[in-house]
Amino acid sequence: MEKKTAGRVDPRVLRTRALLRSAALEMAGERDIESMTIADIAERATVNRATVYQHYRDRDALLLDAMEEEVGRLARAAAQCPLTRPAERTPDEVVDLFRHVDANATLYQRMLGPGGSARFVNRLRELLAQEVEAQLVGADDAGTGPAAARLRGHYLAGAFVGVFTEWVSMTNRPSAPQAASEVWRLLRGPSSPASVASEGTR
């Protein structure tokens, strides 16, 4: 339980959690997630194992917290992409989204790979879906209700997570602009959000 002073979280709690998140992220960039233990993270953070359990239920909960900021950054980048109205030219925002993942490729390899965290994958997909849903519902001419937007949001989010997972694992992966261009070409096809939305209004 968090200690609070005058309605604020005890600074010692914040420091400890920051140490644990930093240690977890460092280790995630060095080794497979499945090989990491609470004891390993505690040793890297220079705290005892029991202290970790005072703040986190298990290793995955700690990793998810450590990656929450990164996931948020990726979701905000996705929010800038005009996913509901694909244009001829690949938007710079989509290229930037892939560049962001590329800049953190090792971390995404660990978290999305076979030995990664299912909770992280689910959280990433959830936030990406929320951003797509918001675009679809907010598009005046999309003709998309909340239920349909939710389904389409998760459809696209799943596609992006799948693409990111495969892309960061490739030995000679295409550049961010190349990968973004290929994904955008697929989005402009018959199953693009804009096309599906327009078909739903017929």
Score class of each variant (00 low, 15 high):
12 R>C: 06
190 P>Q: 01
202 R>V: 12
131 E>Q: 13
51 T>H: 00
166 E>F: 01
49 R>S: 02
35 S>A: 13
12 R>S: 14
83 L>R: 10
134 A>Q: 06
134 A>M: 02
170 M>D: 08
149 A>S: 08
94 V>M: 15
116 G>L: 08
57 R>Q: 07
182 E>R: 11
76 R>N: 11
177 P>S: 10
159 A>M: 13
193 P>A: 12
114 P>W: 03
2 E>S: 14
5 T>L: 15
182 E>D: 14
46 T>K: 14
165 T>D: 07
110 R>V: 11
188 R>S: 15
77 A>M: 13
92 D>F: 10
133 E>C: 11
177 P>Q: 08
73 R>Q: 14
79 A>S: 10
156 L>N: 08
189 G>I: 05
191 S>K: 05
78 A>C: 13
10 D>Y: 01
155 Y>I: 10
148 A>Y: 02
42 A>Y: 00
109 Q>F: 01
89 R>P: 04
186 L>R: 14
126 E>Y: 04
64 L>V: 04
42 A>L: 01
67 M>T: 08
137 V>T: 14
125 R>P: 04
68 E>A: 12
163 V>F: 10
37 T>Y: 04
21 R>T: 00
2 E>V: 05
101 V>C: 07
125 R>K: 10
101 V>F: 12
15 R>P: 00
151 L>C: 09
166 E>G: 07
19 L>Y: 00
118 A>H: 05
3 K>A: 08
119 R>S: 11
156 L>Q: 11
133 E>T: 07
104 N>D: 06
141 D>K: 11
111 M>C: 06
126 E>M: 12
45 A>G: 01
31 R>I: 05
96 D>W: 03
189 G>R: 05
85 R>S: 10
150 R>P: 02
152 R>Q: 15
24 A>F: 01
48 N>Y: 00
4 K>Q: 13
195 S>K: 09
39 A>C: 01
33 I>L: 15
202 R>K: 13
73 R>D: 09
189 G>M: 06
17 R>N: 01
145 G>M: 04
67 M>A: 15
87 A>N: 05
158 G>L: 07
112 L>M: 12
80 Q>L: 14
153 G>F: 02
37 T>A: 05
86 P>H: 10
27 M>G: 03
194 A>G: 15
113 G>P: 03
137 V>M: 14
40 D>G: 03
67 M>S: 13
112 L>N: 08
84 T>F: 08
136 L>K: 09
72 G>Q: 02
57 R>Y: 02
44 R>S: 02
171 T>Q: 05
17 R>Q: 09
13 V>Y: 01
49 R>T: 03
145 G>R: 08
7 G>K: 02
5 T>F: 12
88 E>R: 13
65 D>V: 00
197 A>K: 04
143 G>H: 01
113 G>R: 00
194 A>P: 02
79 A>L: 07
72 G>W: 00
166 E>T: 10
126 E>S: 09
177 P>V: 10
177 P>C: 06
56 Y>P: 02
113 G>I: 00
148 A>C: 04
118 A>M: 11
130 Q>A: 12
